[in-house]
Amino acid sequence: MIAGLALIAGVVLGLITRPTVPTWLEPYLPIAVVAALDAVFGGVRARLDRIFDAKVFVVSFISNVLVAALIVFIGDKLGVGAQLSTAVVVVLGIRIFGNAAAIRRHLFRA
């Protein structure tokens, strides 16, 4: 509930201020988006599993973004940035999909 409100607050603030992304940050934005979605779905699923933990939620989200960005950063320096970026998106994408399926099982018992 409170998380949903905070999410909406973030969206509204973004829409109002329309922050511009610095150029050096742009390559990491897709990664951050996927990590953010992963955190959302993981959090909802943990909540439904009754094992939600605020600390894990925040720390895992931030560390996932940082680690993913680091991987891509190193990949960029070594010339495999695009491939590693894809790898991060694939792994997190699988997790998103699996968590979405678990949420579905919780909600619809199907």
Binding site: I2, L7, G10, V33, A36, V40, K55, V58
Partner: peptide, 26 residues
């Protein structure tokens, strides 16, 4: 409940919303 539970969730969800909308706008 611990004292930082609610603020942590709020900050995390807020950041996520911000990131999503920034990416959308960009």
């Amino acid at each position: 409940r611990r004292w930082y539970d609610a603020p942590a969730v709020i900050i995390g969800a807020f950041l996520i919303g911000l990131i999503l909308v920034v990416a959308y706008i960009r």
